[in-house]
């Protein structure tokens, strides 16, 4: 279709869709008496204290009642990161040279001292905060997914403060892929643990501990740690892959 034709067709369809969305959403506005059944979410929120000894109901829902969804999310990250690595892999007409920052049309200045100091200074608190988020998911908002991202941000700070080689020196070539696989595979393993120890796949089969402790909630903190590892490694892998593609890979025959 021509661009104008496409826009016209889309606007017609979108106008109808927006009208329908507004019509339907309006049914949710207060005024219509709601159904008698309490929501699943509210039932779970009221049960988190005595049932699994966790304080944060989101952890109870996300990693226990609906742990299968967390497993799926973990493997979605695996598929996306592995897919990104596959898409950005070196082609036969490219070679891996020295990591070289470049910008079109100007000379790239070296990393300024301010950035170095800030990066080095911020890295330990960031990593620490990430570890805190990962391990305290059952007590306060946070958990494996969020903490993993913060951990990855800490690693990003190392790259910002230094050079790509500093980052790449921290881990080997395949370590990232293995770490990601370990995170996801660990979640499946915990699932089988539940199956072996008792009732069902992904059951919360470990001792529940005392509410308010770091080690409470059975498999919930374990899942948080395993997922946190997988997510952190996954995001670092994304960072590395993109950087590798941009500043390391070069077409054959290029001057640099």
């Amino acid at each position: 279709m021509s661009i104008a034709g496409r826009r016209a067709a889309f606007l017609a369809g979108a106008a109808v869709l927006v009208a329908l969305l507004t019509w339907g959403f309006a049914g949710l506005l207060p005024g219509r008496p709601a159904g008698p059944t309490p929501r699943v979410g509210d039932l779970l929120a009221s049960a988190s204290g005595p049932d699994r000894h966790v304080v944060d109901p989101v952890a109870l829902v996300g990693l226990d009642a609906r742990s299968l969804d967390a497993l799926v999310a973990a493997f979605t990250v695996v598929a996306a990161v592995a897919g990104t690595t596959l898409v950005l892999r070196a082609r036969p007409d490219e070679w891996a040279g020295h990591a070289l920052d470049f910008a079109t049309g100007r000379r790239v200045p070296p990393t300024s001292d301010a950035v170095r100091v800030l990066g080095l200074g911020l890295t330990p608190p960031t990593v620490l905060f990430g570890l805190y988020l990962v391990t305290h998911g059952q007590l306060s908002p946070g958990g494996g997914f969020q903490g993993g991202v913060v951990l990855a941000a800490g690693v990003l700070l190392i790259y910002l403060a230094g050079e790509f080689e500093d980052l790449h020196g921290l881990y080997g070539d395949r370590a990232l892929e293995r770490g990601l696989a370990a995170g996801a595979g660990g979640t499946v393993a915990i699932g089988f643990l539940g199956l072996a120890a008792g009732p069902a796949f992904l059951a919360n089969a470990l001792p529940l501990g005392r509410t308010g402790d770091v080690l409470s909630g059975g498999t919930i903190p374990l899942l948080d740690v395993v997922l946190g590892l997988g997510i952190a490694v996954g995001f670092v892998a994304l960072l590395t892959t993109f950087l590798h593609q941009a500043i390391v890979l070069r077409p054959l025959g290029a001057r640099r």
Binding site: A181, A182, A184, V188
Partner: peptide, 13 residues
């Protein structure tokens, strides 16, 4: 679900 996924993790590992 679990067997193909465990295998995927092992294959990558």
């Amino acid at each position: 679900i679990a067997v193909p996924w465990a295998a995927a993790a092992l294959v990558l590992l």
